[in-house]
Design a protein around this nucleic acid. Structure first.
Length: 262
DNA sequence: AACACGCACAACCGCAGGTTT
DNA sequence: TAAACCTGCGGTTGTGCGTGT
């Protein structure tokens, strides 16, 4: 099949976006919605190709984008997902609320890839006090930024499920009935372990306790619907470098649940 | 203070695949 | 049915900034 260039390059701006261009693009998308990228330059007057507009919006201007450092739990998840999926960044990003494929790809190439290979990054990742590279004020972190979420924070509810912890099968030290089975539609078990007010896991053993769980879902379906079931538990397995089960934060679960219509 | 170097990340490029004509 | 169009993805590049000398 023949392929035309994405746009005629003549007369188009390239390189870093200006504040004005960002404003025009944001206003246009607010008014007309996403999609029809090719029409944007024509209709908005932006001197950018549609592809560039799409990239700018998806990776930078979208209001739900999370700014700030990758949290340890996100990092853990990226490593595991990459192990399973390889460089399928968009798929990985789809399971990290507010993160873009480009951001994850960059993070992997600069930091995580080395870490996983056992090679320490030359310098620790700069903290959130770092300034943006380009002089664009729209880079301000959103209030929901990961940098604002302490993954180790103890949330003082006793009955609500704060965290979903997936244990590999079979459970070595406990029987299935020691845990709250959220649902096992596919024959897989997902265990919800609420934290006590002291922060230690509270093991549910009574059926009625399950009613306090915040959502009802098929975890394998929710997590990676396009990953074969046979590979699902591989993702959840303990390994030598991460001696703990796979954890998903409350925020992730909320985001996934809303995205997937649960 | 000036320079060199390396890192981080926004942006670009080419390709693949789905949709429309 | 084929060609053209459009969107999305992953790899790569360019460059601003921080840090070390």
């Amino acid at each position: 099949m023949g392929r035309s260039p994405c746009c005629t390059k003549e007369g188009l701006n390239r390189g870093a976006w200006t504040v004005l261009e960002d404003l025009i693009l944001t206003d246009y998308i607010k008014a007309h919605g996403e999609g029809k990228w090719r029409n944007i330059p024509k209709e908005s007057g932006l001197r950018r190709c549609g592809k560039s507009c799409r990239l700018r919006w998806l990776n930078y201007l979208r209001p739900d984008i999370k700014r700030g450092n990758i949290a340890p739990e996100e990092e853990d998840l990226i490593i595991r997902l990459h192990k399973l999926l390889g460089n399928r960044w968009s798929l990985i990003a789809g399971r990290l609320p507010g993160r873009t494929d480009n951001e994850i790809k960059n993070y992997w190439n600069t930091t995580l890839g080395k870490k996983v290979k056992g090679e320490e990054p030359k310098q620790p990742k700069k903290d959130e006090t770092k300034k943006p590279k380009t002089k664009q004020p729209s880079k301000d972190p959103t209030p929901t930024s990961a940098a604002n979420i302490d993954p180790d924070a103890v949330r003082p509810q006793t009955a609500e499920c704060n965290e979903i912890i997936v244990y590999p099968e079979p459970q070595p030290e406990a029987s299935v009935t020691d845990f709250a089975s959220v649902q096992d539609l596919a024959g897989d078990y997902a265990y919800a372990v609420p934290k006590s007010s002291e922060g230690s896991p509270l093991i549910l053993s009574e059926e009625e306790d399950f009613g306090n769980l915040p959502m009802d879902f098929s975890l394998s379906e929710l997590l990676l619907s396009d990953v074969p079931e046979s590979e699902f538990w591989e993702l959840c397995q303990f390994d030598n470098t991460l001696d703990q089960p796979l954890r998903f934060s409350e925020e992730m679960m909320r985001s996934w649940a809303s995205e997937d219509g649960f």
